[in-house]
Design a protein around this nucleic acid. Structure first.
Lengths: 206, 206
DNA sequence: TAGATTGTTAATCGATTAACAATC
DNA sequence: TAGATTGTTAATCGATTAACAATC
């Protein structure tokens, strides 16, 4: 890969992958950029262009073999492997995240949970004991964990992020409703459902 | 407002609003496009340009009065009012959503919960009884509900969306990991945390 | 072969940034 | 007044789309 791939291209690949998994479930084995585009509300040209950054995965006249394309995308995204994830925050939100099946079903395993509140330490959350946040650094380093989720109140999120980064975490999924300041070498994604709702109310008539 | 505002501009306004609320909490009363930009990792020019679509909210030399700007953004986004929201799906995910405080704290009140599974009907979820999905149409229409969240398995999400749309819902927050096909008059936003994780693993070194 | 669809180039479109006059 | 920052215009940048030769 000679040139840098635009971030916006990378961000669409998981969407393609998800659609391909769906097509497999529906029993389909081959698809085309047109079909995929129709399903996703994206132009077929864009899909072909995005995929072409990584190689020629299709065949003229017939389209893409779904199983092959899924494999390729998984390798590009590095999700053909299993990942260990640290979770910080064991309140309502953190507990819900820890219980959620969707993560490990798709290769992301929450393998430790941290909280700062003394009454939560030692309690079980799923199959794991809640650990004090003071143990985070040592544990995350020893397990070489690179991905973490933050589910603490907004006012503590930045501080937690800094602890995680010091411990070697390079990717953070932040559920706290606040923007984090991190070095360029660290990636952050945000989940704030209220923000999504606020993006739609603008369009609702009074 | 003479011309159509780009969707991407609208999508940033809630981010600005959230940052402004944070600044208020920190006791600040005035800010500038530079300060806001630094916090959000966005250029100051972009912030000024975005805001200028809706009017001149600032003062040369001094910047923006935070309280005033928040008010204006809330009105633009139509989040100065309270919204009623329908929730479909009372499984693990739906229950977590129903319990989550963050929605009503910020003006979005879940006022009804629907599920199709007979053993869940009638059970309490928070302060509400779970209703059969067959009642959805009548209830949503009678309450004039315009916003809904979908927290059902992927294979039922499209069907649920269609029921919601028939009942008059115009904005859907979809937690099911699948793309929905909807008319142009209906807005959809997606939340799939795994997708966010997959957007970051690409950048992690092996 | 005829029909379909890819991968890619060039053209278009739209968004971001730079720059600065206006002005508090 | 001098310094700061807005709102806006023009320039730049980058992403999307259209089109088509290649080819299955």
């Amino acid at each position: 890969m000679p040139t840098e791939i635009p971030d916006i291209v990378i961000s669409r690949l998981p969407v393609y992958l998800r659609a391909l998994e769906r097509l497999t479930q529906e029993g389909q084995e081959v698809t085309s950029s047109h079909e995929l585009g129709r399903r996703l509300g994206i132009s077929s040209a864009q899909i072909r262009k995005d995929l072409s950054h990584f190689g020629g995965f299709g065949k003229q006249g017939t389209g893409y073999k779904i199983a092959f394309l899924k494999d390729q995308l998984r390798q590009v995204l590095k999700v053909e492997r299993e990942w260990h994830v640290a979770l910080v925050g064991a309140g309502d939100l953190g507990s819900a995240i820890a219980r959620y099946r969707g993560f490990s079903d798709r290769g992301f395993h929450i393998t430790c949970v941290f909280d700062s509140s003394p009454e939560k330490i030692g309690r079980k959350l799923g199959t794991f004991q809640i650990q004090p946040i003071t143990e985070l650094d040592a544990f995350v380093k020893s397990q070489n964990i690179k991905i973490a989720m933050i589910a603490v109140p907004a006012e503590h999120a930045q501080q937690v992020a800094e602890i995680l980064i010091k411990a070697g975490v390079k990717a953070i999924l932040n559920y706290a409703p606040i923007n984090l300041t991190v070095p360029d070498s660290v990636h952050v994604q945000y989940i704030d459902p209220v923000l999504h709702l606020q993006r739609m109310t603008y369009y609702l008539s009074d």
